[in-house]
Computed example of a mutant assay.
Amino acid sequence: MRPMHAPRSLRFPSIEGLRAFEAVARLGSFERASEELHITASAVSKRVAALEEHLDTALLVRSGRSLSLTAAGKEYLEQVRAALELLAAVPLHRRGPAARTRLRVCAPPTFARQILVPHLQDYTEAHPDVDLEVVLSIPYLDPGTMQADVQVRHGDATAAGGTLLMDDVVTPMASPALLGRLPPLRTPADLLGAPLLRTPLEPWAPWWAAAGLRAPEPTQGPKLVDLGLLLEAAVSGQGIALARPTLARHWLASGALVPLFALTARPSHHYYLMPHAHNGAAAEFAQWLHSVCARVVQEAAALLPAADVSSGKP
């Protein structure tokens, strides 16, 4: 097929001008046309005026706030509508769904439930083009088997080559119901005779050392291999938990859990981010998560007894 060449004397009007004219003629005002076209009424008026200048023909009769078509405008409108319908029928002119970026985030269960998910709406509202998927890692399974764009892990950040997310502390906490059944706990040494909850994910050793006590890990009671389960057990009065205020914020705020001392210690393990892409959705999510964790640490510190909670000293 031989290419069609337009005569040199032929000058096409702009598509924007044609659309503006058709919308004004159909809706009867610049204001209504502006709402449909998502531009100002002034811009609509200028586009129609430019079209009339291009054609050297008046298309509208402007009388105050009312508009009507001239005889030439009525005839031209039918031609414009037919042309716009033809253009709209071209498949390449139809805009497909907006491209979305897939982002898979993997995090430990309690971190995901207590820190990530409660703040997730802020991220999704700010990034509507990101198709976010959150999956949970399982303690003691090889985290390297989890395929994700952003990975939050719990352990030794330095050994794994990760970036620390939160400079956490741990402190003993218990439910008021349990404390009502126990003798007064006035000093850290009083805990040695109290029911202590245990988990390999949060050993008591760092806090014993901060308290100047030589004490072993608890050996009695069920072993909870999940920090969320540890907190739930403490809330239900089953024992005293060595826990992170960052994970226990809403229970501390409601009074369901009570910190027993002003003494805190740095935990054996920390939440950290594994290396990820330096740009794109992964980098933006990581930056957002760092800001969330910083706010969470501040909120948690405000729920502890007035003391130097960052130094680990009573």
Rank of each mutant, 00 (worst) to 15 (best):
R2E: 12
P3C: 05
A6T: 12
R11H: 14
S14E: 09
G17Q: 12
G17R: 04
G17V: 08
A20L: 09
R26M: 06
L27M: 11
S34E: 05
E36L: 15
T40I: 02
S42Q: 07
V44M: 01
R47F: 13
L51M: 02
H54N: 13
L60S: 07
G64P: 15
R65F: 03
S66L: 02
S68H: 01
K74G: 05
L77P: 12
L84W: 06
L86D: 08
L86R: 09
R94N: 08
I115T: 08
I115D: 02
L116D: 07
V117R: 12
P118A: 05
L120Q: 06
Q121D: 15
Q121L: 14
Y123E: 04
Y123K: 05
T124P: 03
E125P: 04
D129K: 10
L132C: 09
E133R: 11
L141S: 15
G144T: 09
T145K: 08
G155C: 03
A157C: 06
M166L: 13
M166P: 11
D167R: 15
M173L: 04
M173N: 00
A174Y: 10
G180D: 12
T187N: 03
D190L: 09
L192N: 11
L192D: 07
G193K: 04
A194P: 15
L197A: 01
T199Q: 01
A209W: 14
A210D: 06
Q220R: 14
G221Y: 02
L224E: 01
L229A: 04
L230R: 01
E232T: 04
A234L: 07
S236P: 00
S236A: 13
A241I: 04
L242N: 13
R244V: 02
P245K: 09
A248P: 05
R249H: 05
L252T: 12
P267E: 07
S268D: 11
S268H: 15
H270P: 01
Y271C: 10
P275C: 06
P275K: 13
H276V: 09
N279W: 08
A281K: 14
A282E: 05
E284I: 02
W288C: 10
H290R: 13
S291I: 00
A302T: 03
A306P: 00
